[in-house]
Amino acid sequence: MHELSMAQAIVDTIMDAAEKNNAEEILEVTIEIGMLTMLNPEQLKFLLDVLAEGTLLENAKIIIEDVPVEINCRKCQYTGLANTDGSDHYLAIVLCPQCGGRDVETLTGKECSVKNIKIEKSDEDA
């Protein structure tokens, strides 16, 4: 899987935002992972911890939020949460809960996104 390269991209994104905002330390980061990505959140979390070592991110609390799958059914026009067969991240088969159809457009569930970070910085440059 590509958790390592995604974790690296996430860390790069966080560091970029932290630097732009003159962070001295990063306290918390919130990451969103769509249920339809081929990413395993636990493995991702582990790799983020490894990559964080010795950086501003070292002591941050890392929060990973699952983003559920929302769809628009082309057959019955249902819009809302999909039925994902109770399956996990790797195998989610997207079904329309109203008509059981599979001809659906996915609206959410493919995210791998750094939502926000909480940082500590000195007052002067505020």
């Binding site: 995604m6 991209a9 996430i10 994104t13 966080i14 935002a17 932290a18 905002n21 962070a23 001295e24 306290l27 969103e32 769509g34 990505t37 493919k110 995210e111 791998c112 996104s113 750094v114 939502k115 926000n116 970070i117 909480k118 940082i119 500590e120 910085k121 000195s122 007052d123 505020a126």
Partner: peptide, 17 residues
């Protein structure tokens, strides 16, 4: 003095791809 700030990032790596 230090202060704590919330920074909106909203950067999606999938969207970047």
């Amino acid at each position: 003095m230090h202060k704590i700030a919330d920074v909106e990032v909203q950067h999606d790596i999938m969207v970047a791809n």
